[in-house]
Design a protein around this nucleic acid. Structure first.
Lengths: 195, 195
DNA sequence: TTCTAACTGGTACTCAGTACCATAACGGAC
DNA sequence: GTCCGTTATGGTACTGAGTACCAGTTAGAA
């Protein structure tokens, strides 16, 4: 007896996959703004209503995969050892963030496709910002739970985000240059201590 | 002959003010989500079309005053002396940001009213985040124009934003505690150097 | 006064997102 | 297999944001 999930669940997954595939096809053809939810539903061969049952809004489908990844990384972050002060927390966050970004940019094509969508649609970039913000807050929450005092628990992940944004600016949308730029930004930040 | 602007311009300003006043009244009465643009237009005694001529969307009216303030602060930032390296840039940015936040929180009632709106409406908080991000980018632009090298030009303002967010988390929505919390966050950050 | 440009508000439209409902299909019971 | 409750589906109908267009009005200059 195989461990495959029940039919219900498989159907759900298939419908979801169809919607995502249809959406990305259409976005690539016509751009995010010129695709309606009805278009996506039609190509995915589901009702318009069904689309909204799987995704809260049109933007959400763009981040469907990222969300799962992020949840995974938050869980991994929870397993990290305690960091009792800011320098320790920052160093730990540095290692974690660099690893996260390396994974995010590992599939360069996928990363670039996503980048292009965000670059062409400010509303999507805003949504991405919101996602990052939530990730950072989850990291702070984890640190706090393991005894890192305030404001270090909040500050360390926020500083990591600052480094990430800086790297994003310096490296443009080059997925290869991004990890190195991120390391450099952290170097500059930590380098404040050796002066 | 007085230096008052021509009638056209005064009328424009009055219409704009009426819309803003009507909007904030209604938001206070019913909350942002339960007020339609048609409601605002009606109370302001203008057509629905006119509303959209003054504000790009319903959210924008919430930030109408903040936007003018920010433009002003960006101009002031442009007049700051050059900062040739990261420590200098960070120190300069620290002073600037603290002053900015002190002004923002000076009118405690106004600040709190705004806070409540953002707290109750995540979409508005997102929009605020976008505004901050633009402010930070403008600051980076200024630094770059005056010769601050990368990544310091990008990093310094991003670090300031990290401190601000940290302060926001620590101080909650207390406008009195916020400036002090911000100073503390900067202390922690700069304090990395004295270790 | 007259002409032009700017401003206005109305109509009509598209589309996102929500509420509701009747129907179909899964999956467990016997 | 049959029956039944739960869950998923897709359709209809609605609200409200935002856009395009247009005809009428008004400021301000000639």
């Amino acid at each position: 007896m195989s461990i495959r999930p029940p039919l219900r669940q498989r159907k759900r997954q298939r419908a979801r996959d169809q919607i995502v595939a249809a959406a990305f096809e259409l976005f690539a053809e016509r751009g995010f703004a010129d695709v309606t939810v009805a278009d996506i539903a039609e190509r995915a061969e589901v009702g318009r209503t069904t689309f909204f049952r799987y995704f809260g809004d049109k933007q959400e489908v763009v981040f469907s995969e990222e969300q799962a990844l992020m949840d995974d990384w938050v869980a991994r972050h929870r397993a990290l050892p305690p960091a009792p002060d800011l320098p320790t927390a920052l160093d730990q966050t540095r290692g974690f963030t660099v690893a996260l970004v390396r994974e995010m940019t590992a599939d360069a094509d996928h990363f670039l496709q996503h980048e292009r969508l965000l670059a062409a649609n400010p509303e999507l970039a805003d949504r991405a910002t919101r996602k990052y913000q939530r990730l950072v807050e989850a990291m702070s929450e984890n640190l706090r739970a393991k005894g890192t005092p305030e404001p270090a628990a909040t500050l360390a992940p926020q500083l990591a985000l600052a480094c990430y944004r800086t790297a994003r600016h310096v490296a443009g949308s080059d997925p290869v240059a991004l990890p190195a730029a991120l390391e450099d930004a952290f170097e500059q930040l930590i380098g404040l201590s050796r002066r």
